[in-house]
Design a protein around this nucleic acid. Structure first.
Lengths: 202, 202
DNA sequence: TAAGATTTTGCCCTAAGTGCAATTTTTCTC
DNA sequence: GAGAAAAATTGCACTTAGGGCAAAATCTTA
């Protein structure tokens, strides 16, 4: 990740991460409106003006933690066995995204954007960028799928499925890892076999 | 729509629409940054302060036109024949959303949010709210699907399909109605029959 | 038509957001 | 390793967003 970066770029990445983490923590602790950009800068050990060199608004910084969480996912995705069914690869990708250590932090952000409606658009923007990055990787792995509806739909649908699995328990308490995996399996079963009426399938 | 509203509420709706339209027009004419909220208020014939009684930010007002475009769609959706396959209903809903007179304006907003990255999060937020509204209608029609992954996934996937069909021609010129319908059919074919590899299907 | 409820508006203040130039930090070259 | 070049950080100034508050205007109801 940080492997081949000069000192300068490493430091930039470092402050970027500090700012993103600080913003996320503050939002999680106090709520989106109960802190100022100056607070974020201070916690990140940097000046207010510098914050604006990295982000345009508070909300952007808060959701940016997702980038930190998923960057290694894309690397793993790029190394999937090429002979495997694409949908299996994507399914495992989505599964890894929603489970493991990532789960709690993603869920926290998710809950945060439920509590603060102003945050939601930016969370969605983040999701959108994530899908596009994944799509680029996918096209690099399968150039023959360039400009096909299939590739784009598959990824969007996979992320939607993962989200739905995450969000589905509207009950407040987080899902267990097993429950989450079961939901993901259900969702991907629809993807594999088509959206017939649920009644048809039972 | 406007049928059973008192004079007061009708007027509120009226100014809401004026503001949304004014914001959208200004954004389309000049670009998102080349006008101020004061301009929106002026064009809508209302004070600057009043703008903030309806929207929190410029971007919200710009994307709000979508609400005006889709409100009648949901009414139609609610009146679908109950004995029809749900996926057929949803498919027709998506098709109606993307084609006809709505198409150009939705495409315009879409293009606008490509030109102005700051707008994109709010466009996504709008889409999200739209899906949720549709989901509420769907649950009213099919209460047995409440709290199922199926209903939520189906709708998300349908909208994604419609969007992908709209967006897919990245070529600048808008798609013909026939092309668009063909893409929608392709997308919904995946939904009906599952996401096998494209190669498996030909 | 008068009292009550709701919306609009103006005033004012804080914080967001940005250009610019000075300053500090890193990189490059010899 | 010293000094020039490049890039990042910072402070300062200034415009606009965003929103609280109370007065004015408008609508509703009896």
């Amino acid at each position: 990740m940080t492997s081949k970066l000069g000192h300068r770029e490493a430091k930039k990445l470092q402050t970027w991460r500090s700012l993103a983490n600080a913003a996320f923590e503050l939002a999680a602790e106090r709520g989106l409106h109960e802190f100022h950009i100056e607070d974020v800068a201070e916690r990140a050990g940097v000046s207010r003006r510098t914050f604006f060199n990295y982000f345009n608004r508070k909300e952007e910084a808060v959701v940016a933690v997702v980038d930190i969480l998923v960057e290694d996912l894309l690397v793993e995705f790029e190394q999937e066995p090429a002979d495997e069914s694409l949908i299996d690869s994507v399914c495992r990708l989505a599964s890894r995204a929603a489970t493991g250590e990532r789960g709690p932090r993603l869920a926290a952000l998710h809950e945060l954007s439920n509590r603060c409606p102003e945050l939601r658009p930016y969370a969605l923007g983040q999701r959108d960028r994530m899908v596009r990055s994944a799509h680029e990787v996918l096209i690099r792995l399968h150039p023959e799928l360039q400009d096909t509806l299939y590739s784009w739909l598959l990824l969007n649908v996979a992320v939607t499925a993962a989200e739905a699995a995450l969000e589905f328990g509207h009950t407040g308490q987080p899902l267990s890892q097993d429950d989450l995996r079961a939901r993901l399996d259900e969702a991907f079963d629809y993807l594999r076999n088509g959206f017939r009426q649920p009644a048809d399938r039972r």
